[in-house]
Design a protein around this nucleic acid. Structure first.
Lengths: 251, 251
DNA sequence: CGGGCAATGTTCGTTGACGAACATACAAAT
DNA sequence: ATTTGTATGTTCGTCAACGAACATTGCCCG
């Protein structure tokens, strides 16, 4: 049996759960189920009925859209700052997009019914989730304009920065093919852009692994979209107190 | 003094207001203020504190984003099916985008405070606004992927269809320059695409006016995005009963 | 330790959109 | 009716991204 660092598996590694007042958190805690998300796993597909909301701790989930031609694009990403499944409380239960695990890891999931019970109390949980949804909208908005006007290289840098924020080690497990699918561009386009970044000493990589060497380099080459989203995210989520010292409920 | 058809100025020409149960509508009605929105008028700008929500009746408002280079793109449009100012109730009060009047007309506006009073009752108004926000998210999502993968001509057709749904006459007051700014492309690109559509007999136009002749033609040449959004919109908003026969409160 | 295969590298022609520059023509105002 | 400004038309060269085809290389697994 593997020895597991409990801090890695505490619900409060997810910022939303951590931001809940104690009363709300304690109500939810017994219903939070730790699940392991594997690379490529699909949390929901277009039209599928979503049964759980997922609060990532160490995993990253990509909200992904596939069009008729087979081409696709990432609409937004969700890491430990957010939750997958906003359509549960926004209404409609499903969306035309899908949610795919982009980086393997863990998440806590909460049954649709439990989520709605808490949401319908119209208390802190509702305000928190709506505020987060607004931040997610900012991300989507920026993605739309970024797709229109910025180059593949700029978008790659932006994407690496966002991912880096969620993977503090800077060691990404990620093929160029996968990155290309996220950005909705050709794999060759990523190969070329990544090659330039490597020559510049900004990143290094080998088969399925990308290492960020100079974060400032990415920031310089990225379009403004990274900073805009980050700033807006911080503004929206900052006045929500982060509860740092929640005790883990002992099994 | 101009004689005005009162049905044009009834709040229930806005689908959201019309969908409210009588009790909720009656509470809000005294606070709804009819305003005329002029072409190009800016309802809010990035960072500006939004003071009212706007429920369009005959006007169309474009949620618009301008990047550092000066280039821009439309993120979504709001007509009489929706409301401008979701950040008021979602949280944050403002967004990095702006709202610009794309087609002159009327709207009812509601003070931020009044809106929040009703929203905080956690009744039908909350559910309605969240459901609409989910539909708006679908629009933004689709715009993001459309910007990545579809041609200017396809996007023009999509945009004309959306606008046509909000302007039943099919007579749009709109320069190519303005359309280009909406789609975030060059004016010449619109000239060329529109020229092809005219040759095909799908549309006709003259200085600042576009007339749709064959709607089916647009549907054929448009990308899938129009249909996806429309279908999803209908799904999300259909189980919300439309109140057709609200009485106008006499002044 | 040596396949075998997936990931990465490289090249080529093609294309859709861009940016700039300029020509034309319509509609509103004098 | 003529003017004038703005909307539309047209044509360049340029370029970033595409699609396809193929070469190479690192890593896992037998």
């Amino acid at each position: 049996m593997a020895i597991v660092d409990p801090s890695l598996h505490s619900p409060n590694r997810n910022h939303l759960l951590a931001a809940l007042p104690k009363a709300e958190f304690d109500r939810l805690a017994p219903n939070l189920e730790l699940v392991e998300l594997k690379l490529g796993q699909v949390l929901y597909e277009p039209g599928g009925q979503l049964q759980h909301a997922y609060f990532p701790t160490s995993s990253i989930v990509s909200l992904h859209y596939v069009i008729e031609s087979g081409d696709s694009a990432e609409i937004a990403g969700v890491g430990n700052e957010g939750v997958v499944g906003i359509s549960l409380f926004m209404g409609g239960d499903t969306t035309p997009s899908s949610a795919v695990v982009q980086t393997a890891g863990f998440a806590y999931r909460l049954e649709r019914r439990r989520l709605m019970e808490e949401f319908d109390r119209a208390g802190p949980m509702l305000r928190l989730l709506l505020r987060y949804t607004q931040a997610l909208i900012t991300q989507m908005t920026q993605t739309a304009v970024c797709n229109r006007h910025h180059s593949v290289e700029q978008q790659l840098c932006r994407w690496l920065l966002v991912t880096l924020d969620r993977v503090p080690s800077g060691q990404l497990t990620m093929t160029q093919e996968l990155v290309a699918s996220m950005l909705g561009v050709r794999r060759e386009g990523i190969t070329e852009a990544a090659g330039r970044l490597r020559v510049d000493g900004v990143i290094d990589y080998r088969r399925g692994h990308i290492t960020v060497l100079k974060r400032e380099g990415l920031e310089k080459l990225s379009c403004e979209c990274y900073a805009v989203v980050k700033t807006e995210f911080d503004r929206l989520m900052s006045d929500i107190p982060r509860v740092e010292t929640l005790k883990v409920v002992a099994g």
